[in-house]
Design a protein around this nucleic acid. Structure first.
Lengths: 197, 197
DNA sequence: CATTGTTCTGCAACTAGTTGCATAAACGAG
DNA sequence: CTCGTTTATGCAACTAGTTGCAGAACAATG
């Protein structure tokens, strides 16, 4: 139940149309809460129905016609309420870790390349974040809202740093592993051409 | 599409009934892929239907009666295929960061307590992981599968470490913020009792 | 002005995960 | 032996997110 609030935040920062929101989600906001344009349109409709936002009056409402929204007081109040409410962090869900664990049973074949690929992706993302930091947060800004936004960006940077370090470490571990077998489990006569679904 | 593979992994490590699986998901596997017992039962049914696992013959099949499963060769093959296949890391989705960003617009009231609470939760989790590390991975083990499992645990430890550090940093930032206002945005006459839902 | 491509909006169907509850056997206590 | 509790299995309905596609306006071009 966070997408509506992500949209409210984005609209408070700047009133926008569905497509503009989509683009902004692809950039800054999407870095920690991604959404497709279909989700966004659907949610805009709901939010309007609930009286939390409204279409800007100037643009006329017809299909294929740009329609911008702004947040109403009720929307702002709801966002404030939600931001302060208690919410537990939801447990991690990571397929790479899962695959690593599966590999402990079923063999590490092919995994190393995958680790390398992920390392590269995370390095790229890290570089992008650091570019943003240099551009948007030069030393010596301290409007409170800048500090908060910087804090969020820091989380992104530190997370990507963590992943690149962990992946690098994982790769060195792999380097001196016995050798990638197709199956290192407690082999119980797995026929070579066993097939599947 | 990872739950079936998580189950296959768990069953390869040790054939189990639905409830046993549920318990194991609450512990080790659930640390990076959580699942409820309903999900697990549903998925066990599907996997059996697809011929990837089968019920152990000894136990009789009646409701309320324990029924254990083991992985068939086809299941092992499918797991190996999946573990080696390419999968992009899916983008971060974190409500706390989102709420922090919202707070930059709508005011930081109540947020500090929430940060503190999360800090405590992450510290607790970190302590638990470290306990497991001490217990299950004493120095000097190097069976390849132990190394892999340790690597996964390391990821958990390092992630929790990251969060505790980031949250600590965030709290010091909060300490010298102007003062938590109910609304620090470009105030446009937000009536105090504006509403909700 | 018909044709084609792009921008912008949106519906519908599907997949994955969650919540709430139902049922059946097993076991212990009165 | 029956009543309540625990263990174990499972269905059904709901929520959130994803995928695939389609339609309306607008702009460029022959």
């Amino acid at each position: 139940m966070s997408l509506p609030h992500a949209i409210l935040t984005a609209l408070l920062e700047k009133p926008s149309s569905g497509l503009e929101l989509t683009r902004r989600f692809d950039k800054s906001i999407g870095y920690f809460w991604s959404a497709t344009h279909q989700q966004i349109y659907r949610e805009l409709g709901k939010l309007e129905g609930e009286g939390l936002i409204r279409a800007l009056p100037n643009a006329q409402p017809s299909r294929g016609q740009k329609k911008s929204y702004e947040v109403l007081p009720a929307g702002r109040a709801e966002l404030a309420r939600w931001a302060a409410a208690g919410q537990d962090p939801k447990p991690l869900r990571d397929t790479l870790l899962l695959r690593l664990r599966a590999s402990a049973v079923v063999g590490t074949a092919g995994l190393e390349a995958e680790l390398r690929r992920h390392l590269e992706l995370h390095q790229r993302q890290l570089a992008e974040y650091e570019g943003i930091e240099k551009r948007d947060f030069p030393p010596g800004r301290d409007a409170p809202e800048d500090r908060l936004r910087h804090l969020v960006l820091r989380a992104g940077i530190d997370l990507e740093t963590f992943w690149t370090q962990w992946l690098t470490h994982a790769l060195t571990e792999f380097a001196d592993l016995p050798a990638p077998q197709a199956d290192s489990g407690q082999s119980e006569a797995t026929p070579p051409g066993a097939g599947q679904s």
